[in-house]
Design a protein around this nucleic acid. Sequence first.
DNA 1: GCTTGACCCTCACGCAGCGGGAGGCGGCAA
DNA 2: TTGCCGCCTCCCGCTGCGTGAGGGTCAAGC
Lengths: 252, 252
Amino acid sequence: MAYTVGQVARAARVTVRTLHHYDEIGLLSPSGRTPAGYRRYSDADLERLQVIRAYRELGFPLEEIAKILDDPAGDPVTHLRRQHELLTGRIGKLQEMVAAIELAMEARRMNIGLTPEERFEVFGDFDPDAHAEEAERRWGGTDAYRQSAERVGRYSKEDWRRHKAQNEDWGRRLAELMASGAPADSPEAMALAEEHRQLISRWFYDCSYEMHTGLADMYLADPRFTAYYEKIRPGMAAYLNEAIHANAINRA
Amino acid sequence: MAYTVGQVARAARVTVRTLHHYDEIGLLSPSGRTPAGYRRYSDADLERLQVIRAYRELGFPLEEIAKILDDPAGDPVTHLRRQHELLTGRIGKLQEMVAAIELAMEARRMNIGLTPEERFEVFGDFDPDAHAEEAERRWGGTDAYRQSAERVGRYSKEDWRRHKAQNEDWGRRLAELMASGAPADSPEAMALAEEHRQLISRWFYDCSYEMHTGLADMYLADPRFTAYYEKIRPGMAAYLNEAIHANAINRA
DNA sequence: GCTTGACCCTCACGCAGCGGGAGGCGGCAA
DNA sequence: TTGCCGCCTCCCGCTGCGTGAGGGTCAAGC
């Protein structure tokens, strides 16, 4: 029923100093003290600390947390609800960042240049002003980028050439399969989808089925990726998309 | 090709002051200056800043970022890959937090007391020592909790009584349906699952179909929730779980 | 009753990562 | 040449603690 600083600290995964600090600034003062001056925390204090920790974890400054907590309208359910919303929002933001990184990776893999703006888009909101201002040189430096094989990093030119050859070979076979009239969910198409996935995994990053379907959708959504595949053979972007999805479902 | 601080700041969504700071500590020094002393950033500087921002966003201290960036083995793909891993890891952590919050919400709704440990479990890793130390009073204070209706916050006793009545009525009807032998994916069962979802939404928090299936799984995984339903009628936890899933699939 | 080790207390300084302002020069459009 | 915006260099301030120093306390075991 009554806990010492140390106990509270361990339970709440914070340091004793942090509790001292919260006491100092009046955010969480223990409801009692022993004759010797030791802090004694009650269950209610623990509950308050829990809420504090949750908001902190979500990036709230202590002062604001104090305000929220002292708001008379702030019952526990309200906090939980708000935290739930904030969390799902943050998850969404992180997923966008993941998508942006996957885009960057695929752009490298396919040697597609990104605009400066896109390279910063990872961080969410986009200032339309900055966008407009930089729009002029949007397609300026990209062509130089598009040609440089060193962009993929530590791979040697030889490595890069081999990857490119494998990739082109794969593309040829997929084009042939399409020409043969095999449906996108045929075993042969799925096999080529799987090969595509493993090509990525071998050369770039571990590509799960989930990621793979994400990439597939990107190929349809982003005109540059679409163009990449359409240039190999018209209809290939959609065909590949379907084959990748079929493959993912089949393997799951 | 050469940008001023202001331009870079706007593009990268940071303040000029931040760029000054990065220059001061040598993390990102512009590759040139004008005769007047104005900082001039090159494309390479921008690219470096992009990587810096990404790691910062992931919570890395500047010093560590400097180390990572000056690591000769650190090519761009390595960074992207690492960032991708870190991001998915963080998403996982946040999803656990979401699950913990949903657990807390449902525990409140069903008037099930949580142990102090669980209430802090939101924050990930659990110290087994602290756990052992507190295990004694694990079931101590819970009974008092279990009885207090005020725990749900700002609802009046009257509100709470009404929710309880609705809830019990719903439980009775589900039990009757089970007794009638209707399968868990029958329209009637799905209707009751939907009612369950709306009961939650009306009284506590907006419950999406996705959340609802998450709750359903929790009912099976957590013995306290299971017990809650089994006490109404044996087999109800599994039955409800199936009905909720069927309902979610049907509405999607 | 006494020691011992873990735990608690109160200062008090330090640090990261900037924010924000003062005071002043530079660039360029009208 | 005037005005205005943007750039420069100090430099002080803030948050949220970390990390001692220096010293009391409590429960256990002898």
